[in-house]
């Protein structure tokens, strides 16, 4: 089956695949930046002591985690024009990706913070530190270590999720692959080329996560 793969056509369409690859990279980078901002804010809201601020953050995280990205994407795609907000599909896509990943980022950071032993907080309290001082000087510096690798994992998920933007006609990697299928009626060539491009990103990020974990391992542990 893969023996008669038409590599000539794949090479011919390489510039299109490359464009799609760049578009996917850019969409994902923008989406991840947005997700980090939203995630940090949602996490900060969900761990601070005021109840009426905690509620909305919890509802946001649960609502996102319990619904599929595609439904969220359509919600914005069909819903925003209704509110009189007319923006390009690309922007809708980035907003959807940010909102979706933001909830997961919030959970990742929250579990990083909650993994800090309670004694650390108590020690901070007993030396007379305020809430913000404890956060900034004791908890956050320690919470970064356990969150980096799951965050890279979330970046991988986000890159893969960005393929759904092709369904609201944003031109990115998956869409570029479909072009070959439509132009030449060669779906396999397009799909294989696209899959390889995604795998490059996947392995790069996986490697990055591995290197980071190795370099930041705690002393005395294998």
């Amino acid at each position: 089956m893969l023996g008669n793969l038409n590599t000539r056509v794949m090479l011919e369409y390489l510039p299109d695949i490359w464009q799609g690859f760049l578009a996917t990279l850019m969409l994902s980078a923008a989406g991840f930046a947005g997700a980090m901002i939203i995630g940090i804010v949602a996490c900060a809201l969900s761990i601070q002591p005021l109840r009426w601020l905690r509620g909305p953050a919890v509802v946001y995280v649960d609502a996102i985690r319990a619904t599929p990205l595609l439904a969220q994407l359509y919600f914005l795609y069909f819903g925003l024009p209704r509110l009189g907000i007319l923006v390009p599909e690309m922007v809708i896509g980035v907003i959807a990706l940010s909102l979706n990943s933001g909830a997961y980022v919030a959970e990742i950071i929250r579990s990083g913070i909650l993994s800090i032993p309670r004694g650390q907080v108590e020690a901070g309290k007993s030396t007379g530190m305020t809430y913000l001082q404890r956060m900034r000087l004791i908890i956050l510096p320690q919470a970064i270590r356990p969150t980096v690798s799951p965050l890279i994992g979330q970046a991988i998920v986000l890159i893969k999720d960005s393929s759904l933007l092709s369904l609201i006609s944003v031109v990115e990697l998956t869409r570029a692959g479909q072009m070959i299928a439509i132009d030449r009626f060669m779906p396999i060539e397009g799909l294989v080329a696209t899959a390889l491009a995604y795998l490059v990103l996947y392995y790069l990020l996986k490697l990055l996560a591995g290197v980071w974990v190795y370099q930041n391992r705690l002393p005395g542990r294998a």
């Binding site: 089956m1 991988i156 893969k160 999720d161 960005s162 393929s163 759904l164 092709s166 369904l167 998956t174 692959g177 479909q178 299928a181 779906p187 396999i188 799909l191 696209t194 899959a195 995604y198 795998l199 990103l201 996947y202 392995y203 996986k206």
Partner: peptide, 23 residues
Amino acid sequence: VDFFRGTPFLLQVFIVFFILPEI
């Protein structure tokens, strides 16, 4: 496993839908 963890699910759906009939 890495192949399917590293590619978008949408792509996999297309692969099953378009490539399996070829074989």
